[in-house]
Design a protein around this nucleic acid. Structure first.
Lengths: 258, 258
DNA sequence: GTTTGTGAAACAGTTCACAGCC
DNA sequence: GGCTGTGAACTGTTTCACAAAC
């Protein structure tokens, strides 16, 4: 049991890539450009700075813990335990403790965790204490929806620009942003100092724009384009593909559901 | 590599209430309702029917292979090899061969794979040869965008209904669909015989709607609501949460990027 | 008594490397 | 010679179970 109460966020929508040609298949999956570089050794010296390397699986769960903690805070809970938090996040208590122990020892044996403290430690570990400036490339349905997505703003992610190449879209207002010309990418990135880019453009245009972004110094990109993008070492790329999700669901439906 | 993930809310912000904007929220990450049920044994008898159990990670990659194969077919390639296909899909050739070998032996040593054949085998294994009827619950920005997403239609997924509860939205046209009243869920599900539901509603309404859907026999649900949903055994649930993706990106940006 | 933090065990997924076949 | 299919090694992840701390 548990409930979920939580606040809601804003709407957003998905876009559709007219794409050029294809039929499209899609896929998703996710992947981090894990290239530390061809020649770099991958063992991180223990000395690192403060940043500890967190397993990918742990990162995904940490975001869930944050959400659950938020819900708890919203309903006034001050403390929680691995059992309660795990149930709310839908995971096993042991893995939750192991995940948290990777961040440090912030719990009290026999008692549990203080909600606010834990929230802060996780946020800090995940880099959410800083302000991220996001540029959305592509003002199609998805781009527009994302730009109005409250969940981003309320979380340290500020949408600083919304770009497109279509003349009929440039200059139009979307929420409190005005769609700007992608031809001015350079100046816009410089003026806004965006450090994350969201690519919501047709697959055919994605690689080219991705290259431009990387060339302008953007090192973190979240792509919705249904294509595999090549990025050089040191650039973080994540992909989200809706069609993939439906396909995987179809597989399970075929096998276990009916 | 996946388990479940999902997103959280903002660490530092307090929550506000859902405004009126209807539907949706988002976030991504994904998860399979791995609940085979508290009391069910999870080991699938090897006898299964035709369906072989494919690892979750393999499923995610298969969708990528399908996409790459599609692109190849579009440009006229008749044959391919694990090396080429893997490069195009962005994976290691060995894992690609291992993935494909789980479906059967459809390649020819010294030669490679026939594009059309491989496409068909993968599609069949993933359940994409049948026609899926999808009902979208929540006609907010996300719901509307999804209903127009060409990638679904072109792949065996037909959107058969778009529902909402807001009076001002019911009856309006979205593409070639008309938004219907969620109060008529029963009749609509029966009339359309939808076998997959997409939940693009606010988090607060998600669990309730999810229960209703399950009660009406829907066994496969793709949720965009930023909450952990509880579903009974035998129901497939996948979650997509955008905020999660940005948060994970922020972590990597903080550590390796800049 | 309760709950954390964590080694050790179990499990899962990926890469290597090569035998077998074309 | 080239490429698939796959056992074996490896790497990563989850679960178990319990000692330490309150």
């Amino acid at each position: 049991m548990n409930s979920s109460k939580e606040s809601s966020q804003n709407p957003m929508s998905i876009e559709h890539h007219p794409a050029d040609s294809d039929v499209n298949v899609s896929a998703d999956g996710f992947q981090i450009a894990e290239d530390l570089g061809p020649g770099m050794e991958q063992g991180q010296p223990p000395t690192g700075s403060l940043a500890r390397i967190l397993p990918e699986a742990t990162l995904a769960r940490l975001t869930q813990y944050l959400r659950a903690l938020n819900a708890m805070q919203a309903r006034g809970a001050e403390r929680t335990s691995s059992g309660v938090l795990a149930a709310e996040a839908g995971v096993n208590p042991a893995i939750l403790r192991k995940d948290l122990s990777l961040l440090g020892s912030y719990g009290t044996r026999g008692v549990g965790y203080v909600v606010t403290e834990l929230t802060e430690h996780i946020s800090k570990a995940m880099g959410l204490m800083q302000h991220w400036r996001v540029a959305i490339i592509g003002a199609g349905n998805l781009g527009r929806a994302l730009s109005g997505y409250g969940g981003f703003r309320s979380r340290g992610f500020e949408i600083v620009a919304l770009l497109d190449s279509a003349p009929e879209v440039i200059g139009t207002a979307v929420g409190d942003l005005e769609v700007q010309d992608i031809a001015d990418l350079d100046q816009i990135l410089e003026a806004t100092d965006a450090n994350i880019a969201v690519l919501s453009v047709p697959g055919a245009a994605a690689q080219d724009l991705c290259d431009k972004l990387v060339g302008r110094g953007v090192r973190s990109i979240l792509s919705f384009a249904p294509v595999v993008l090549q990025v050089p070492s040191g650039v973080n790329l994540r992909k989200v593909d809706l069609a993939t999700e439906l396909q995987i669901l179809a597989y399970h439906a075929q096998n276990l559901g009916s």
